[in-house]
Amino acid sequence: MCGIAGLISHQREKENGSRIKKAMVLQNDRGNGLGAGYAAYGIFPVYKDHHAFHVMADSSFALKEVSQFLNEHFWVAHTEEMTIWDKVITDHPLFMRYFLQPKLREDDVNPDDFVIDKVMHINTSINGAFVCSSGKNMGVFKGVGTPKDIYEFFRLDEYQGYCWVGHNRFPTNTPGWWGGAHPFNLLGCSIVHNGEISSYGINQRYLESNGYICTLQTDTEVVAYLLDILIRRHGLSIMDAITVLAPPYWASTKRYSDRKEQDRITAMKVIYEAAMLNGPFAILAGFDNGLFSITDNTKLRPMTVGTTTDYSYFASEVSALYEMEQDFTQVVTPRAGQPVIIQYQNEA
């Protein structure tokens, strides 16, 4: 069991994290204090074209190694210690923020692949260091604690973002540790997840044969990597990527009257069988152009969505929606397997 909340301004109006905090605090009992986290989009307007790396490290030695590595492979525009309030959580890792541009060489065709490669390197090869987020104009703040503790620890009142995602963890499969808290991020994509990915074993093998390395001891990580491979590397639309992750049943596919669409879905299901997610899940994913939710085909985990003219809200519990907004034009509970995709109406 975990708690999820998200809010997005269609016109990219910024606000601090107080509303997402209220929604998460209300859902406090969906977690057990062993993990909480937030993702915020639009928070670094000054360096919006730089990759903002949030690095956690368990020693200054590890941080130094990360700094050396980053200096070697990136133009570092700015480095700062992340502001924290360590009265609320005393036992915590060190946090550092870097604004980076990749130092591409001639044979580095794709800058995104370059960045991912470096993130994977830090996560797997630098002992005790871990990249929490690597997107542009966004950041992930997460750790071991309750939603309220983590919010206050990272002083999220001080950030202004147009899309906020929150998560509250009740770990059952894997240990609660700072890196294992949600959201999981890769470039602009941040995932929060309630549930358990029973297909993890094959998802992980699929990703590994495509060059990803799963290091975080938790199943949610694969969702971030799967979206990366599907959308960024294979060029699928968000809708198609969602079809891959939570496809219609074969029985439904066979009932399609449009033969071409039937074959298209069949081909996708066949090609991406190993990327399909099985097990109970409700996922909320932030990306550079918006926010979307998916649930498993049996709807074993909750997700509700509320909308107003200018905002959309997501939460595990309806009551949490009302912590963020009182006056909805619509509150819906998506059906099993039905995605909800919200994209910004203007350019950044």
Binding site: S199, G201, I202, P280
Partner: peptide, 16 residues
Amino acid sequence: LNGIYDIGSFRGNRLM
């Protein structure tokens, strides 16, 4: 009993 509705998620899933 493993909560998997499609055999595709069982295939190669050695954690099962």
